[in-house]
């Protein structure tokens, strides 16, 4: 009887987590496994038959100079976006923490970009920076900064910086809010004590603020790195990878191969390579996490 009860209790406990396990298994792990399978086949978007092609797709992708340049563009896009988001988000959080009045007001305004759907980010900035009637380009001409209307989306010199600006605009609020909540966990008396000991603001920042928030910020940065690296929507909707593949990242490349050229097998190979790269980053991330958990202040 008791044994029976124990088994029943195990079953009810398990049934709580079963749906979640099914979602992860059926919607995440199984599709990834099938993607790995298709990456070794000639799967086409329209045709139903396909055959096994071995490593052909991988060889094709890795020897394609467009893939290599897309990968480099992805790295560039990720690194510069991240630096921008962290610098803006971090400084904004420090400024917010510093001021006494209007904190809530500024915070509320500053997080607006976070709520934007990617399609509206794309459309609003395309309109604001529009090369014929856009507010900013025409204002820049009126101010005498440009002699003719700058074309932010089609000029080689501008397009990448424009995308970065938009991505920083979108991503900085998330960093800001998280740094802010990390800042608020620092006990205020530590600053008090440091001030009595004659520490400068810079020293306080270096020896109290930074160590306290480094764990949260570090992990946040890694998660954001992956997220920015994976981002498809923004670039697809704003430039579509153009002009002349100049802003084509790996996700855009995979989309073009899979849905543009209809070669899903090859597209699978691209995304599997992407996954392998990200898993390596992931492994490094957990390593750092373990290390921080051993030494960290929290």
């Amino acid at each position: 009887m008791n044994k029976h009860k124990k088994l029943l209790s195990k079953i009810t406990a398990f049934s709580f987590v079963l749906p979640a396990i099914l979602v992860v298994g059926l919607l995440l792990l199984y599709p990834v496994a099938s993607s790995i399978f298709y990456s070794f086949t000639s799967k086409n978007l329209i045709k139903t038959t396909y055959k096994f092609v071995g490593l052909k797709n991988y060889i094709k992708v890795l020897s394609d100079s467009t893939f290599i340049s897309s990968f480099l563009t992805s790295l560039k896009w990720t690194i510069f976006s991240l630096i921008g988001q962290v610098v803006v988000g971090f400084t904004a959080a420090l400024a917010l923490e510093h001021i006494r009045r209007g904190k809530g007001f500024y915070r509320t305004i500053l997080i607006i970009p976070w709520a934007f759907p990617s399609i509206v980010i794309a459309m609003s900035w395309k309109w604001i920076l529009n090369g014929v009637y856009g507010f900013v380009p025409i204002a820049l001409v009126k101010l005498g900064i440009f002699s003719e209307i700058p074309q932010f989306f089609t000029t080689k010199e501008f397009v990448f910086a424009t995308l970065l600006f938009i991505n920083i605009w979108f991503g900085a609020p998330l960093i800001m809010v998280n740094v802010l909540s990390a800042l608020q966990t620092i006990p205020k008396d530590q600053y008090e004590a440091a001030r009595i000991d004659g520490a400068t603001s810079l020293q306080q920042f270096r020896y109290i603020t930074l160590p306290h928030i480094s764990v949260v910020v570090g992990l946040l940065v890694v998660l954001r790195t992956i997220w920015v690296f994976n981002n498809f929507d923004l670039i697809y909707l704003i430039t579509g990878g153009g002009p002349a593949n100049l802003t084509q990242t790996v996700p855009i490349y995979a989309y073009n191969v899979g849905w543009g050229q209809k070669q899903l097998g090859v597209a699978s190979a691209v995304t599997v390579l992407l996954l392998v790269f990200l898993l390596v980053i992931c492994a490094i991330y957990f390593r750092i996490l373990n290390k921080l958990e051993k030494e960290g202040p929290q």
Binding site: V24, L28, P31, V32, S34, S35, Y38, K43, L45, L223, I226, W227, F229, N230, F232, P251, A254, Y255, G258, L264, A267, S268, T271, V272, L274, L275, L278, L279, I281, C282, F286
Partner: peptide, 22 residues
């Protein structure tokens, strides 16, 4: 938590291919 973080790292485009098939 780690499994969840790992799935958070899956690129949406990686899932898009099998999803369109499945």
């Amino acid at each position: 938590t780690r499994v969840l973080i790992t799935t958070y790292m899956f690129p949406p485009i990686l899932l898009a291919v099998p999803y369109s098939i499945l």
